[in-house]
Every structure is written in structure tokens, then in C-alpha cells.
Simulated scan of single mutants.
Amino acid sequence: MNRITQLFNINYPIIQGGMIWNSGYKLSSAVSNAGGLGLIGAGSMYPDVLRTHIQKCKQATDRPFGVNVPLLYPNIEEIMQIIVEEGVKIVFTSAGNPKTWTAFLKEHGITVVHVVSSTKFALKAQEAGVDAIVAEGFEAGGHNGREETTTFTLIPMVRAQLSLPLIAAGGIATGRGMLAAMILGADGVQMGSRFVASVESSAHDAFKQTVINAQEGDTVLTLKELAPVRLLKNKFYADLQALYKQCPSEEELKALLGRARAKRGMFEGDLVEGELEIGQIAGLLNEIKPVAEIIDEIIRDFKAAQQERILF
């Protein structure tokens, strides 16, 4: 056991990212049943939908699971109340100030983890009283920090300043990547993109296929003026680049982005006009597999790498 497996009472220090439009109860329960920690992605769910997914997840697994809550979303009070009412024991918060909700959640016996993109915010989360930190490098898919610090730079920097259990995220999809992150000071890893390309992911099949077809350089971090996000290149991205040439205002960027573009791309499968969020590591993925096979493969790869990398 290490600090992450002990904290969450799981077999492997592997956490599935709670990604919008990808992380319903089928994915989270499958990850938990396979020995990792599954997370329901509350960011793409209305409160009543979230409650249903939590209830279905409890029916689908008797193992620990959690909910990922982006703090910038509306209905946050209702979401937190549902989490308490449904007896969720683990919450990952992101995209906001951890001081706002950490005390409330811990008063209800909930283990709290906060996602950060810098050492400065990691220290603030530690001060807020969280139980663990996810330090996410800018290789990650979806919304990112503005610092553009890579995972393998960020992890040792945070480790040097932080006493809490530390989870590495961004650009990790294999056992070898997991071993490298842990050598640099992480106690466990969070993987998002690898689980997007799983049978149980709630993403549209067309999006999953696009992810495994992606090559090196096919993703770009953009929209830094609003909320930095890593996207696959498509017509929407090309339209965005054309607009950037005109030095647009934030309002013009928001107008092009519109509403529900991420849902359109990842959940409904519009590969042309949708927002297709995925990490750089997509270039290493080439097969959609069941979650149980993915986790077995990661653990085998991790153990093989441990044996192979004894250099002297």
C-alpha cells in the first residue's frame, strides 16, 4: 500500500479523471471495480442527472468512487447538497478556490482532493485543508492552468513544497508513465485521455475513434483569454485561429465558442463544429478497450518497467 491506495482504500494508485461528457457512472464504476478510483464528472451534469449517476454507480460497484466538481459551474450549492445526501465519500474539486467548499465537505466526512496547475495553488489548497493534491501539467486535455508547466517539471516542484499525498496528472496513460511520475515524487496518477478511449466511456464513438487516430501535434492549448483548453484540431479550431488573426475581444471569442460546444463534440459526435477536448497523450493511444483490460495493461507495464529500468 502507498498513501493514495490507503487514502481511498483502492488496490492501485490510479485515478480516472472526472471529465465532462466522458465520465458517467458506467466508466467510474468500471474503474473502481478494476481496482482504481473512478470519478463521476459532475461538470457536464444537471443536479438531478448527477444524483441519478451517483445512485447508479452505487448499484454498479461496492468499491470506493468519487465525484469531480468544477467549482466554477452554476448550481454548485445544489450539487454539494446532493453529494452529501447521497453519501459520496470522495470529492475532487477543480477550477476554483478550495477554501470555499473544503471545510463543508470535510464536516460531512468527505475526503477532499483539489486539482492545481502550479506550486502556488498547491500550497493554497494545502492551507485550505484538503486531503490530497492533483498536480496537472499542461499536457492534459480539457481545461488547464495558464502557466504551461509540464507534468514532469511540476511534480518535483510541488513535491519539494508539499507534505500532502500527491497525484500526478497530464500526459500519463501507461504504466511506464505512472512509474516515471512516482519516481519524481507522485504517490499516484490521474489519467483522463486513456479512459476516454474505453468501452465504458460515455463519449460518442466517433470522438473515441478520433482520439485513437490522433497523432503527435494534433492537440493545441488555446482560448487562454477565457479558460485555457486543449483541443484536437478540427474546423472549429480552424475558425478560432482565423478569429485570433483579427485580435478578437473576449466577447468575440465567447460569441464564437457559444454554448454546449463541448457536448456537441465529445458527447454528440460532431467532429466538425464540436469542441474536442483531449490530452497530448492521445498520440500514444491506438485502441479502444474495456476498462479492466486498460488497468491490467497499465499494471503489467508498470511492473515490467520497474524490472527493466534497474540500470546500475
Results as ranks from 00 to 15, higher is better:
Asp131Tyr: 05
Glu268Leu: 13
Ile15Asn: 00
Thr5Cys: 12
Gln215Thr: 09
Gln306Tyr: 13
Phe152Trp: 05
Thr222Phe: 10
Gln55Ala: 13
Phe138Asn: 05
Pro13Phe: 06
Gly66Trp: 03
Lys58Tyr: 09
Glu297Phe: 01
Ser117Ala: 14
Leu256Met: 15
Tyr244Gln: 14
Ala160Leu: 10
Phe207Glu: 07
Val113Leu: 08
Gln190Ile: 00
Glu147Ala: 06
Val88Trp: 01
Gln190Thr: 04
Tyr46Ser: 12
Met80Asn: 05
Met266Pro: 07
Ile40His: 02
Ala180Trp: 11
Leu257Gly: 01
Phe65Thr: 00
Arg264Trp: 07
Val196Cys: 14
Leu123Tyr: 06
Ala181Ile: 04
Ser202Gln: 08
Gln215Ala: 13
Asp48Met: 08
Lys56Gln: 07
Val91Trp: 06
Ala214Ser: 15
Ala173Arg: 00
Asp296Thr: 05
Val134Arg: 00
Met1Pro: 03
Ala60Trp: 08
Gly66Lys: 02
Asn97Asp: 15
Ala214Phe: 07
Leu27Ile: 11
Glu136Asp: 04
Gly171Asp: 09
Asp187Ala: 12
Val49Thr: 15
Glu136His: 03
Thr210Leu: 12
Gly141Asp: 10
Val189Cys: 10
Gly279Phe: 05
Glu147Asn: 11
Lys124Thr: 09
Ala132Arg: 00
Leu71Ser: 09
Arg259Lys: 15
Gln190Arg: 10
Leu164Tyr: 06
Val31Pro: 03
Asn33Arg: 14
Leu276His: 10
Ser28Cys: 12
Ile54Lys: 03
Arg63Glu: 08
Thr93Trp: 02
Ala206Ile: 02
Glu147Val: 03
Ala132Tyr: 06
Val291Ala: 03
Ile294Leu: 13
Gly279Met: 05
Ile83Gly: 02
Ile79Phe: 00
Thr222Gly: 13
Val69Ser: 04
Asp62Ser: 11
Pro156Lys: 12
Phe65Cys: 00
Thr150Arg: 11
Ile110Thr: 02
Arg230Glu: 12
Gly43Val: 01
Lys245Cys: 14
Ala292Ser: 15
Ala186His: 10
Ala30Phe: 04
Ser118Glu: 11
Ser163Cys: 07
Ala292Pro: 05
Phe236Gly: 00
Arg309Trp: 15
Val130Ser: 00
Ser201Leu: 05
Gln55Phe: 11
Lys233Ser: 12
Ile183Tyr: 14
Leu285Arg: 03
Ala206Ser: 15
Tyr237Glu: 14
Val158Lys: 03
Tyr237Ala: 09
Leu257Ile: 13
Lys89Met: 09
Lys233Thr: 02
Lys224Leu: 06
Ile294Ala: 05
Glu148Asp: 14
Lys106Arg: 08
Pro64Glu: 14
